[in-house]
Amino acid sequence: MFIAVKLWRNSPDLLKHSKVPSFLYGLLLNIFNPKAYASLITILTPVVIPIKSTKEQPFGIILLVLLCLAVVAHIDAAWLLAGAKLGMLLKSHLQVRWLNNLCSIATVASILMT
């Protein structure tokens, strides 16, 4: 609920004065984001890698890690493209304000539906 209130009250003018994070900051944030790993665990829970012996266990773990990296790479690419398109569409403060309000309403709706 706190995030919804912050989104609703946020002023688009704050974006002009805020410092844009660096690529390295975004990369480190992505690597050390525990929510990403938690969501991957829930997505990949049904994935069963057949392991017949303890000798094959490292292979199964490596395969699971590679699968996680492939999923993350596709999700990040989709977010990057969506952000680039939104950046081109949202030119005015009114449009940014409208998007903030829409996201705030969606956040409150998701809380009330659970």
Rank of each mutant, 00 (worst) to 15 (best):
V96R: 07
S22T: 15
T114G: 08
I51F: 00
V65F: 14
T42P: 03
K35P: 07
I49C: 00
L90Y: 13
L29F: 12
L44M: 07
A70N: 05
L24T: 14
L63I: 07
P21R: 03
M88K: 15
C68E: 04
W79M: 08
L81R: 03
G83Q: 04
M113I: 15
I3A: 06
W79G: 10
A70D: 08
P21H: 05
L24P: 02
F2N: 01
L27R: 11
D76E: 09
G26K: 09
L44S: 03
T45P: 00
F23Y: 13
L14P: 03
I31K: 02
A82C: 08
V72K: 12
A109P: 03
M113V: 15
C103Q: 10
L66G: 11
K55N: 12
L80E: 03
A4G: 01
F23I: 14
F59R: 11
V72P: 05
I62C: 07
Q57W: 04
V108Q: 06
A77G: 08
I41E: 03
I49Q: 00
I111H: 00
E56P: 00
P12K: 02
M113Q: 14
D76W: 05
S110D: 03
T107S: 10
A77I: 07
F23S: 13
G60W: 08
S18V: 01
V48T: 01
L27H: 07
L86R: 12
L81Y: 06
V108E: 00
L64C: 11
Y37E: 10
V65P: 02
Y25R: 06
P50Q: 08
L63Y: 11
I111F: 05
Y25I: 13
K52T: 00
K85N: 09
L102A: 15
F59C: 06
H17F: 09
A73V: 05
L27M: 11
A78H: 02
A73I: 05
C68G: 14
T54V: 04
S39V: 11
L28P: 10
S39L: 14
L99M: 15
L89P: 05
I3W: 02
A38H: 08
V20K: 02
A82R: 06
K85E: 09
K85S: 10
N30K: 07
L27N: 08
P46L: 07
S11E: 02
V65G: 09
H74N: 13
I49E: 03
E56H: 02
V48S: 00
I105H: 13
I31G: 06
G60N: 05
N30Q: 15
T42W: 04
H74V: 15
L67C: 12
N10Y: 01
F23N: 11
V96S: 04
N10W: 01
E56N: 06
L102K: 10
L40V: 06
V48A: 02
F59A: 13
C68W: 06
G87A: 09
N10C: 01
H17V: 04
F32S: 10
L24D: 10
L102H: 07
L69T: 14
N33T: 13
S22R: 01
S92F: 04
Q95N: 11
I62K: 10
A109T: 05
A78K: 07
T54C: 05
A106L: 14
A82G: 10
L94P: 06
V5I: 00
V5A: 04
H74R: 13
V96G: 06
